[in-house]
Simulated scan of single mutants.
Amino acid sequence: MSFHQKEIRLPAYRRGFHIVTDTIVGHLPELKTIEVGFLQVFIKHTSASLTINENCDPTVRGDFERHFNLLFPEDAQHYQHDYEGSDDMPAHLKSSTLGCQVMIPITKGRLNLGTWQGIYLCEHRNHDTGRTLVLTLMS
């Protein structure tokens, strides 16, 4: 088995759910040389997350944001961690719920995602300066 790894820095995104599949693939020209393998995408942050979901209808991403805000509201009285603002503890909860990594099969030089699937960067903070991803190709 062989491995190739690199870190990339995403630009700042507003709070919400954003499709970053093309950005990730654009940083991986090596992907085209892999017949069978996997791509692991890992985010190095505790207030943002990754998931795979609907890549066509943007209302899905809006519904995700609204739903997660209902599940994890800002300024809840039971939060103790509030050092970085009212959006910080909800961001940690959202991140742990969705997770910090995704794994995608590679087949014939392409990510083997379903027709309607895309990789989401889930930005849970009101203000971000960019996020770092670790991309690991395994073949």
Rank of each mutant, 00 (worst) to 15 (best):
P58C: 10
D63T: 04
V102Y: 07
Y120S: 07
G62Q: 13
I19E: 11
Y83V: 04
C122D: 09
D82I: 06
E123S: 10
H92R: 12
A76I: 00
R66V: 13
K94P: 04
L70Q: 15
I119S: 07
F68S: 10
L50P: 00
Y120A: 06
P105M: 07
G99T: 11
P90R: 14
C56K: 06
N55Q: 10
A76H: 08
T23Q: 15
I104A: 06
H45N: 05
D22P: 03
K6H: 06
E84K: 10
T107W: 02
C100R: 09
C100K: 09
C122L: 03
K6L: 14
M103S: 12
I19Q: 11
F17V: 13
D57I: 07
I104L: 09
Q101D: 04
T51K: 03
H67Y: 10
Q117D: 02
Q117G: 03
H45G: 01
T33K: 02
L113F: 04
L50N: 00
R110E: 08
A91N: 15
C100P: 01
G85P: 07
H124Q: 04
P105E: 10
T51H: 02
G37F: 05
H45S: 09
L50Y: 01
I19D: 15
A12T: 01
H27L: 04
C122Q: 01
A91G: 14
V41W: 00
I43E: 00
H18P: 11
V36A: 14
D88L: 12
A12D: 02
S49I: 01
T97R: 07
T59Y: 12
L111G: 01
I43R: 01
I19S: 13
Q77Y: 05
R61H: 08
G62Y: 03
N55Y: 06
F38P: 00
H27S: 15
N55D: 12
F64E: 01
T51P: 00
D22Y: 07
P73A: 08
G85M: 11
V25P: 04
L50A: 04
P73G: 11
K94V: 07
E84W: 11
E35N: 14
G62W: 02
T107P: 00
E123P: 03
K108R: 08
L28Y: 02
S47F: 06
L111R: 01
C100I: 07
K44T: 12
T23A: 15
P90T: 11
L39A: 05
I106N: 06
Q117R: 02
R110C: 06
W116E: 07
P73E: 02
N53S: 08
N55A: 14
R110W: 00
T59P: 03
H124G: 05
G26D: 13
L93P: 06
Y83G: 05
K94C: 12
P58L: 08
T97V: 14
L50I: 00
V36E: 14
H67S: 12
S86E: 06
Q77C: 06
D87P: 09
T23L: 15
E74W: 01
H45V: 00
V25K: 13
G16D: 05
